[in-house]
Design a binder for these strands. Sequence first.
RNA 1: CGGGGUGUAGCUUAGCCUGGUAGAGCGCCUGGUUUGGGACCAGGAGGUCGUAGGUUCGAAUCCUAUCGCCCCGACCA
Length: 589
Amino acid sequence: MKFWSRFFIPTLKESPADAEIASHKLLVRAGLVRKLSGGLYTYMPLGLRAIQKISQICREELDGAGAIELWMPHVHPVELWEKGPRWAAAREIMFRADSAGDGKRAPRDPEFVLGPTHEEVITPIVKSEITSYRDLPKNFYQIATKFRNEIRPRYGLMRAREFIMMDAYSFDTTDEGAIASYQAMKTAYERFFRRIGATAIAVEADTGVMGGSYSHEFMVPAEIGDDDVIYNEESGYAANREKATSALVPADLVDAAPVGEVEEFATPGVVTIAALEAAPYSVSGDKQFKTLVYIGDGKPFIVILRGNDELEEAKLGSLGFTLFRPATPEEIEPVLGAKPGSLGAVKGTIKDPSALAGVFADHAIRLIGNGVTGANKDGFHLRNVNVTRDLAITRFGDFRRVRPGEPDPKSGQPLKLRRGIEVGHIFKLGTKYSEKFGAVYTDDQKQTQLMVMGCYGIGISRTMQALIEQSHDADGIIWPWAIAPFQVLICLLDPKVEEAMNVAKTLASAAEAAGADVLIDDREERPGVKFKDADLIGIPLRITVGGKGLKEGVIEMKWRAQKDVAKVPLAEAETTIANAVRSAAQASA
RNA sequence: CGGGGUGUAGCUUAGCCUGGUAGAGCGCCUGGUUUGGGACCAGGAGGUCGUAGGUUCGAAUCCUAUCGCCCCGACCA
């Protein structure tokens, strides 16, 4: 048991000025964290306890799923990253360090980066330590600090520059094995989130810079979340909007037959979809082709969408470019022959087709059939443009942003949208890293094979804040039992009265014996202060030992999540509390 | 990186427009009265007003630069 007066819980009456959202305010007010600088936080003693509980449950579930804990360095030689597959994409968010110390690094001084994750570290280890199929599969994990120089840290621990993360890496002999590892981790995640009392749903996700074939994110629904989740409860479809699709284009769609010849018409000054929708042109957005130009790894490429659709930029990741960005007008004109606003992809109108890395069309343009697009000549558009006859399309794909209300790809029911906080992510990586680092094994036919990898992350510190965001009221935090920094708080109203102190200690021992972590508030404060602080720090079970009750021969028992207060006769108090602790522990197991 | 906001005691802030002795509440220290939902009284400590220049007889206040922080966007494993 711990005594408040000898512990350290610096609570605040007022919210810090720089906190905007409930969970961030409560993190600070309840004395869980203190800010050092933007995105950099100290975990104060109470906050650290919650972090440790979450970590421990995470550890138990991963161990249960067969993963093996280790600990890797957080300072990485930069060469390792230069050798890996994502240096170009990841370098901007990495903190860099040199060994010179005076900022004047000589060429022979090694240069380091602070690890944002550890694929580049674990893969070489596995490469040198595992060479036989007999030693596979393996799944290694750590729970440790990660460093990412986020452009904009946000909301306390929600997006921090330094944060605590569980990261795991699986190595299998085959694709099927990798899928099994992936599934095992998905199950472990589900068990983990359930045990810590979080509502987290698995949604299909974009693989982003990580690469790899597929992935799921675990989302805690919350308005302040950074991600949009597209879902339908009935069908069970759920996906990050970056990845979400809809059944907007029927599978049995027959492409429209061409109508008329392609015909140029003057559209002076018209450079937007909206302007072409207006009189005198009156071409509705769903009859226009929107032509966007991007630069992928230095080469321009075209994306064609319906006029009233938006590009979901993350979906361009499927095209295989390491880096891509919108092209500037200066880059566009020499290739297409016109400025943005008059662009198109009709065969023969592109000035320098050989410069293009490809023309990629969203499936939904097939719904247009025959429509209008730019003529690649400033001030002119083309009508009677037919998708199958006139456009030089390299490949169709899914590039548009799904809108709520569109039909679910599984059931056809309308899709919905809500915000979520990403607390976990699992990726099936494939052989991307094994190839770069030469992580191979010998199979039972004496053949050399690439290991098939997966990687997995849980934002431990972010999860703590997400839980607060999910579970609080006007008075403070309401911790789920399993991760509460303490499970039982004994509010000792008269700490100087020896009899009361003895009762408090006896009850604390009983609760501890039943498996709870107990905090005794023995501060010489007025009762009001203690009750307010108790609500603020959100300990699930509160026992009040006060003069008033002791006169009647009772103590009081109150759950943080409930309103009612139970009076318990002193003689039964130890048993009642022990039972309450056991049943709460059981309910959250 | 673009847009907006902000920086005054440990915390929350007033004062800034219109230049003239830097104020309050909370917290802290001392004493007293209180004691079941953030008590009251009396006294006290605590500030180079983010930093650096400039204007001025005089700058928290006006000007310039710079740094930090917050929000929106872009970006983001």
